[in-house]
Amino acid sequence: MSTTLRPAAASRPAGEPPRGRAARRTPAHQIRRRLTPYGFLSPTGVLLIILMATPIIMVVWYSFMDGVITSDNPAFVGFDNYLEVLANPVFYTAVRNTFVFTGISVVAHFTIGLAFALMLNSPLLGDRTKGLFRALYVLPWLFTVAIVAVLWRLLLNPNGVVNYIFGSLGLTDGQTEWLANPSSALLAVTFINIWAGYPFFMISLLAGLQGIPRDLYEAARVDGAGAWQQFRNITIPQLRPIIISMALLDLIWTSQQFPLIWMTTGGGPINATEVLSTFTYKLAFTSYDFSLASAAAVIVLLLSMVLAFFYVRHQKGRD
């Protein structure tokens, strides 16, 4: 059975004036009615303008000036700050490190997150075991970045637990300087970031896995599909929207990671772990060159916007 609702005006004979509440719809009332939604949105709008739009516009403006904040009369210098940032070899080291750090982190977050999510969704494990593993696996996500940094600095200390275990097992000489050696530092901070971030993927993918209809797997089994074929042809396609969303968000977040790197290595040793965020921070807060820092920040913003564009397009595609 279907019901069709028709507008009240349609049931009124033509030419007859509106009655009741409709009779009060004067032009002023209609304007007020149109403006009401904007009134409701205005607190959010004001906050967005003050907290989001204004700082971004100011930073973009700063990037075209020389000596902002530290000088009373900053001068307009056009793209000079951008040229100076782009001429700095450390900037390219930071870009390369950011790509390595972000790329490895996102792939590892996805792989480990998916593996653990599949395990937690497996019918082979009892509910209690699953609950225990779920609590254990989600643990790294519960620590703040400062705790993660301090924890791993202690663990990876030359006299720390990791070296003791590896040394005892004969895997290393037990004296490895994981964070202080230029050749291992980037991989070490990437490893810490992977450890701290995989639960985000795991939880999201687990929710996705639990939403896949069971009958799809039953039908596949009836058709003779093995575990790998089910995984490739049902699990992955069903999870694809979540995987793409998570991957894009993780790319954006990880490429902007600052506190973990700052608190573990400070961008060193030498420039081994210098990433775009630490590069920009140093320009602003140790060189007090807020103009150059703004130019670097705008470059980072543009790079992030490319990722954000794909994310928004993907989300729109889903809708």
Binding site: R153, N157, P158, N159, Q175, E177, L179, A180, N181, P182, A185, T264, T265, G266, G268, P269, I270
Partner: peptide, 21 residues
């Protein structure tokens, strides 16, 4: 020189000395 110097901070230095290393 004690290992880990390139990322060592002042508090790490004090800790190394405190622990007799």
């Amino acid at each position: 020189v004690a290992p880990g110097a390139f990322t060592m901070k002042e508090q790490d230095k004090v800790e190394e000395f405190t622990n007799g290393r």
